[in-house]
């Protein structure tokens, strides 16, 4: 670090900060779905990473189809791929809730084991269907390349794209949860299930849609993720622990807390990566998070819900 001038240091810091921002976006996108499922329903979905992989593979399939049948469509297919990723993950989530999760609401620890089993099955199915090799979709040209902000600072466009998507999805989830009729029902069910049932809310249906929505958002996260890195059958499970920590650290059931914790974890890790090597940065970040959680088990933002 001796031979560097101040401006070089500054631009490295800016780029490292930006890579932290894109890590933050991916973490947040994944955590949003989990925050809905875990925070609102108390269900631990260990297969969340696999729903992300489903989204990523859907994007890959879309790019493949577009490439073979309608090459002229190449520039704008990505938006439809994101929608398709959401749809496919939503549908599979709906079926999973119907067939598995709804029998286990009373036993949260058992849900954890059952969804872990589900994740193994989904991994194997993905591996049989797409092969063990990692794949990545053909990205439209405008997504590649980078913006030159100054002479030394370069910002990749796909990172910006992911960030934009994150902002849109976060806003969408916020509007859905806090400004819509459906969100009202979800929040009512979380606060008092029996009472919600008594006033005429179909709580079973609310659960089903909530779970499916969480899975759908994981699908979007997968679609976004695949623009940054390639996807393999097990790439979802790599992020599952980090994502759970983001949700728990932020305080289950709080959207603001999830955003704040994804930001702090993403930035801490990226900035530490600059000073130490990758694995130590991760260890220290996780240790700090676990340490804080031990001191403050309810997370950063406490949601005022009587349980």
């Amino acid at each position: 670090m001796d031979g560097m001038s101040m401006s070089e240091m500054g631009s490295i810091l800016a780029m490292q900060g930006f890579s932290g921002l894109s890590l933050f976006s991916v973490l947040l996108l994944m955590a949003l779905g989990l925050a809905i499922i875990f925070g609102q329903m108390g269900v631990i979905n260990m297969a969340h990473g696999e729903f992300m992989a489903i989204g990523a593979y859907t994007t890959y399939l879309c790019s493949h189809l577009v490439e073979t049948y309608v090459p002229g469509f190449q520039g704008s297919y990505f938006f439809f791929a994101v929608a398709a990723a959401f749809g496919v993950a939503f549908g599979i989530g709906y079926v999973v809730e119907l067939g598995l999760i709804r029998f286990l609401y009373k036993r949260p620890l058992d849900t954890l084991l059952a969804t872990w089993g589900l994740s193994l099955i989904m991994q194997q199915i993905l591996r049989s269907a797409f092969g063990a090799r990692e794949v990545s979709p053909t990205l439209p040209e405008w997504l590649l390349g980078s913006l030159h902000v100054t002479e030394t600072v370069e910002i990749p466009i796909n990172g910006l794209m992911v960030m934009g998507l994150t902002v849109v999805v976060t806003l969408g989830v916020f509007l859905l949860l806090y400004r819509s009729r459906w969100g009202l029902r979800v929040r009512a069910t979380v606060q008092n299930r029996t009472m919600s049932g008594a006033v005429g809310i179909n709580t079973a249906k609310v659960d089903r849609i909530t779970f499916a929505l969480g899975c759908g958002i994981a699908g979007i996260a997968g679609a976004a993720f695949t623009t940054i890195a390639s996807t393999g059958p097990t790439s979802g499970s790599l992020y599952i622990v980090d994502t759970f920590l983001v949700v728990v650290f932020g305080g289950a059931g709080s959207l603001l807390g999830t955003v704040a914790s994804a930001f702090s974890i993403g930035e801490t890790q990226s900035i530490l990566e600059f000073f130490l090597n990758g694995s130590m940065a991760k260890v220290i970040t996780l240790l700090v998070v676990v340490g804080i959680l031990m001191l403050r088990p309810e997370g950063l933002v406490v949601s005022k819900v009587r349980r």
Partner: peptide
């Protein structure tokens, strides 16, 4: 650290899992 603060159930499971992840990364690193 956890039981004195009445952390249990699902939170305990997630945090022990994170500790397993940390130790693995540490040993490999």
């Amino acid at each position: 650290a956890m039981f004195k603060r009445r952390v249990g159930g699902v939170y305990f499971a997630i945090i022990t899992q994170a500790i397993a992840a940390i130790l693995t990364i540490l040993i490999i690193g």
